[in-house]
Structure formats: C-alpha cells, structure tokens
C-alpha cells in the first residue's frame, strides 16, 4: 500500500519545527507503525537525509516509549494499544497520516517526535513509592489480599507511563497517570500507611510541572493503552481532599 506522511521535524528543543511531507510506496499492511517509520528512515539514510528521531524500546506494548500523535489521536486510531501495537492495516491505501509529538508544556520536544517525559519521573519521585522495604516476592505471598482488591491494584499498576493521557487531554492534564500511581499503592496494605500524604505530594509536583487541571472529558481513559479507568481519578481526588482536610501536614 501507499501512504502520504506528514511528520513533525524539529532539530532540537529551541528550533522551529514543521510538518514535512514524505511518501512511501511499498508499505505492507502487516508492518507495525514503527516498522513503517523504520522503512522511511532507511530511505532517508540512503538519500543522505537525517533520520526521524522517535522513542521506542520494547515494541510489544509494555515500555510506553513509543509516543506518537497520529492523525489527531494519541497512539493512532486504535484504542487500548500503543503505537508499536498499531499496524498499517488500520489505514487505507493512499491515506494521508499526520504524525506529531506529544504536545504539553510539561513534555518539551527534544527532537522530532521525541519528548522529554521526565516530569513523570519527578511526580513519582515525589511520593509514588513505599518508604519501607516490603520484602521480596515471597513476602508478598504472606500478606493475604482479597482478590477484588488485588485486581483493582493491578488495573492501576498496568500504567506504563507513556503519557498518552496527557497528550490526548485538551488541558494536557496528567491526572490519569497520577491517579493510577496513587491508586495502585493506596488500595494495597503496604501502600496504605502513606496513601493520603502521597496524594498531596504527587499532586503538588504534578502542578509544579505545569500540567493542566482535570475537566473530566474522559479522553485520557479512551486513549490510554491500558484503558485505566476514571474511577482512579475519583480516588485520587478523594485521597487528596481527605488528606488536605485531615492530615497533620500544614
């Protein structure tokens, strides 16, 4: 199949970027989107042009690196999937495909399609952990946790920190990410002791990084490759407000 691409090219964070047109004539519908970009990069190299810089690592939907805003959607037209899990059969012959980086004040562009997502790391460093050693895998089996609670924690823990929620949100809000991190620790006994202060610290860091507020449009959850539920945002709100009103921290 044939595709017309419009890809965001930007030399570095300070440079002016623009959408550049490329055409690929021999694309297999079975290629993943990233493989298609690899082919394009191969052609660019042959022509002596600079390759398109993009983040990727596992190429199996678990690392969260492959950030691309494709045809107006985070990770493209599929739901519940990352860019590496998107295949060219999701497009039609002759389609024009616009590829942009995540756009958010907190995610500055490094080069082309690569953005700096270290704001997420700092939000996690602010409180997304359990302060004491909770033991090794064997010890986990000694703390009995009812199945529904373990499932709830696992649903939240599936978050791979890809940033699609921020990219898709009209406010570039990181609430779904922060909610997933707060939730997955808050419902487990090992994380409960620090649950409420954790919410305070992580929200403070989220605000400091320059993410927007939540308008509850639900775009994040639809575009999240792990379909993290909006229930977790409600829990984050509850933990945060409850802590603000009752904690000893002034």
């Amino acid at each position: 199949m044939k595709v017309n691409l419009k890809v965001w090219r930007q030399r570095n964070g300070n440079a002016q970027g623009k959408l550049v047109d490329y055409q690929l004539d021999n694309v297999s519908p079975d290629m993943s989107f990233l493989e298609m970009i690899d082919v394009l990069n191969g052609e660019l190299t042959m022509k002596g042009e600079e390759m398109i810089a993009f983040d990727h690592d596992c190429r199996e939907g678990i690392c969260g690196m492959c950030s691309m805003y494709i045809n107006g959607r985070a990770h493209g037209p599929q739901t519940g999937a990352t860019t590496c899990q998107l295949h060219m059969r999701s497009f039609s012959d002759g389609d024009t495909i616009v590829v942009e980086p995540w756009r958010a004040r907190a995610f500055p562009v490094i080069k082309d399609l690569m953005v700096d997502r270290s704001a997420f790391d700092r939000v996690v460093q602010a409180g997304g952990y359990v302060s004491v050693n909770t033991g090794s895998a064997r010890d986990a089996n000694e703390t009995l946790i009812p199945r529904p609670i373990a499932d709830e924690a696992m649903d939240a823990a599936q978050c791979i920190g890809c940033g699609a929620c921020v990219a898709a949100c009209k406010n570039a809000s990181a609430m779904l990410f922060v909610a997933a991190k707060v939730s997955h620790l808050a419902v487990l006994p090992q994380g409960q002791a620090e649950a409420s202060l954790r919410a305070e610290k992580m929200v403070a860091q989220m605000d400091a990084e320059g993410f927007g507020a939540c308008s509850f449009t639900g775009a994040c959850s639809v575009e999240c490759p792990k379909s993290i539920s909006l229930d977790h945002i409600a829990r984050l709100n509850r933990e945060y407000l409850g802590s603000k009103v009752t904690s000893q921290a002034i």
Binding site: G72, N171, G212
Partner: peptide
C-alpha cells in the same frame, strides 16, 4: 482562571486533532 491555566498547559497546539473520537462535545 482554570481555562487560561489549561490552555497554557499546551503552548504549542497540535496541527491536527480528532477530539470527537474520545470525548463528548459538551465536556470540551
């Protein structure tokens, strides 16, 4: 205040977006 803050959270806009695919019009 919120609307201005939220707009400032994305200083560079997308060239092409398809918000109707993921959220209701009223919410946006």
């Amino acid at each position: 205040i919120l609307t201005r803050h939220n707009q400032a959270s994305r200083p560079v806009k997308y060239a092409y977006t398809k918000p109707e695919a993921n959220s209701p019009w009223s919410s946006r």
